[in-house]
Amino acid sequence: MRIRTARRRTAVLALLVAVFSLAVAGLAAQSPEAMPTATEILDRARGAWQGDSFHAVVSVEVTLAGQTKVHVLEVWTLGSDYALLRVLEPKDDAGSGYLQVGDKLWYYSPLVGGSIELPSMAIGDTLFGSGPSIEDLALGTLSEDYDVTAEAIDGGYLLTLVPHPDAPVVYGKLELTVTSDYAIERIVTYDQRGGVLRTATFSEVVEVDGQKLPTRIVVEDASGNRTIQRITNAEYNLNLDPSFFTLERLEGAE
């Protein structure tokens, strides 16, 4: 039996953080030796993003029940403890945003006129409907929660992650397709009966500050809903420090 307190899971913005953590994977040196162990592949694929700062504009296109909406967000992160997200579009939502500091999370909207601290129990719901739930893609606890096995496939590895019996995970298994240079290409999430719940596909890898970043992430779920994330203006290793992540900044005062 394992109890997990909110702290490790609260990373609401981990959605984005996680995505970027996957992106930086390309950093890892390609290893010419024999096939590495499954855990090594996973660790390399996840990369070493901790402590890194990141800034980008992300457009999220959500298709729900046949209707498509586009959200454009500006994102700053610092390690796993700090994140700031601001909505640029749609117009009626512009200026609102989220701030995460440690395990606390605030929401701000000009309509509401102030910051609201969100209860931690809510976390894990999807930010824009459909698509990946925030904590689903926050792969931060993967190796803790899952048994990982790997097999070599054409052009890379197929990792199969089966949750430990007592892990607080509602999925049956995850399948990660990783290229031979340790970039994640696809994550397929299965329910406990072997049905596919959703598929996340990573593509259009570009090199930013020497790091390989997939700029297009498509997540499709079983009922045909889809989100497409496009990352532009990505920057790594800015001079951000924790004092950047304040409520004042969330509220646009600075």
């Binding site: 959500v62 729900l64 029940a65 929401y107 909207s109 509401v112 102030g114 609201i116 601290e117 969100l118 209860p119 809510a122 719901d125 999807t126 930010l127 824009f128 409907g129 459909s130 809903n225």
Partner: peptide
């Protein structure tokens, strides 16, 4: 009250 809408098809909306 802070209301956090959690409909699976709408995503999180927040109101105070």
């Amino acid at each position: 009250l802070v209301l956090l809408g959690a409909h699976p098809e709408t995503g999180v909306g927040v109101l105070r």
